[in-house]
Design a protein around this nucleic acid. Structure first.
Lengths: 242, 242
DNA sequence: TATATTAGGATTGTCGGACAACATATTTAT
DNA sequence: ATAAATATGTTGTCCGACAATCCTAATATA
């Protein structure tokens, strides 16, 4: 009988280093906040040189599992929703996503998010939304950048209030993708200030009364309003986001 | 008058290398598929050593912007939706997302996705869905793993058919997060086969007739059905996904 | 001539050692 | 006892070297 050999593991050492550490993090042996051994010690334990260890560390670092903490020592980190959102949105930008795609997704997600929010948003979360709204109300007229900030912050707070990290990550990545471009739009849209303010107020009111349908409807309206802004500003919806 | 100095850029060299290359990719100077210079040449151009260049490359590599291609040369790559989904779902798993969170997000997204699909799914996409359904119909009874595959594949095809990369990435990451765990559930749910099959058929029918409301309703039902499976199988919805 | 083989060169993967920069811990001086 | 100076440990960067691998081109063979 012919003996069968398993295929050899021919991955580069630095990849193996990365995997080895990652595995221990994933399996819970290394918990969040734990300090990893120094590079020298890792070399000794793995039996490889510092160059390889360091390259492996870079891989872990970029995937958000590890971080340089106090004394520059390596610390185990569990990825936060905001970081996931950031890398996801960056990747999608690089992947060539368009304004149209982002907006359609926005229009799909946020009305539902508003509906869920109407069902269970906490009082603090509602308070945070009111704060944003008030900030927007008191913003000086003509300050487009401030308006944008408040508009995005409103989405942000709503997403945070849902108390669901998966949703949060997704909604946040959308926020990041439109955030920058909203500037252009609001600059060129008359009444943007009042219309956004009005939409926010209506949404807050609906949330307060746990009126799911109304929260959903106004969020839909709000987003459609923003989208129209893009059209008015002659932003090509097929253009890639940056 | 006191002169103000800008804060010096004290980032490590390998980070700068990473940023420099990333910038050129982002700005379109380096397009997808282009071969990057060899390590030696990069050293010469940046005026740093190979160790630093290599560490920088690892960072780019893990963020999916660069890849080893033929002859092991580095090639510029633009992240695909599927990869974005993969890293996102992995990160969320590590970040401690729970079944409950994933399911709630699923229940929020997919009904809307079905509604949009009813509006504009192409005939090919519909055909692909039918193929999945037929595959499931003809699956041998009791083959839980096959049933799971078809169930996930149905979601997958629906997402692909939407022709929106942003949505696709988000829906796919959800698919990845539940995919593995569905196995457990379907193993222990009687009638799972028929119920899933029925739901798929109803959804397909609704899509064919461009009946948005019905597509949405059946998708909601379908997901709720799956969720009940988790409860029946006594999977703790607060448990972290793996 | 066309194909298979071989030799050569280019490039990456890994190693070892070295030193400066920086942060922490320890000792010394006030 | 507090502050300053020193010692120690760790990371960041450099250099040089060599084996493994892949590509290319020259060579041999049919």
């Amino acid at each position: 009988m012919k003996h069968k050999f398993k295929p050899l593991d021919r991955a580069p050492v630095y990849v193996k280093v990365c995997n080895a550490i990652e595995e221990d993090i994933l399996s819970g042996v290394l918990k969040e906040g734990v300090l990893l051994p120094t590079e020298a010690e890792l070399c000794a334990q793995f039996g490889v040189t510092r160059s390889s260890v360091r390259e492996g560390i870079r891989l872990l670092q970029q995937s958000g599992l590890v971080e340089r903490g106090a004394a520059k020592r390596l610390v185990v980190k569990s990825p936060k929703a905001s970081e996931i959102a950031e890398t996801a949105s960056r990747s999608m930008a690089l992947g060539g996503a368009t304004f149209g795609e982002v907006f359609e997704t926005l229009a799909m997600l946020y009305p539902e998010a508003a509906r869920i929010a109407a069902r269970r948003l906490s009082d603090e979360a509602l308070g945070a939304l009111c704060d944003v709204r008030d900030g927007l109300r008191d913003a000086p007229p003509g300050a487009a950048d401030e308006i944008v900030d408040y508009a995005v912050e409103f989405f942000q707070q709503l997403a945070s209030g849902l108390d669901n990290r998966v949703m949060l990550a997704m909604l946040q990545s959308l926020n990041l993708m439109i955030g920058a471009s909203l500037q252009l739009v609001i600059d060129q849209t008359p009444n943007a200030h009042e219309r956004i303010l009005n939409a926010q107020s209506e949404i807050i009111e609906a949330l307060k009364n746990h009126d799911e349908a109304r929260a959903r409807a106004w969020m839909t309206k709000h987003i459609e309003d923003l989208r129209r802004g893009y059209v008015v500003a002659k932003v090509n919806l097929d253009a890639r986001i940056l």
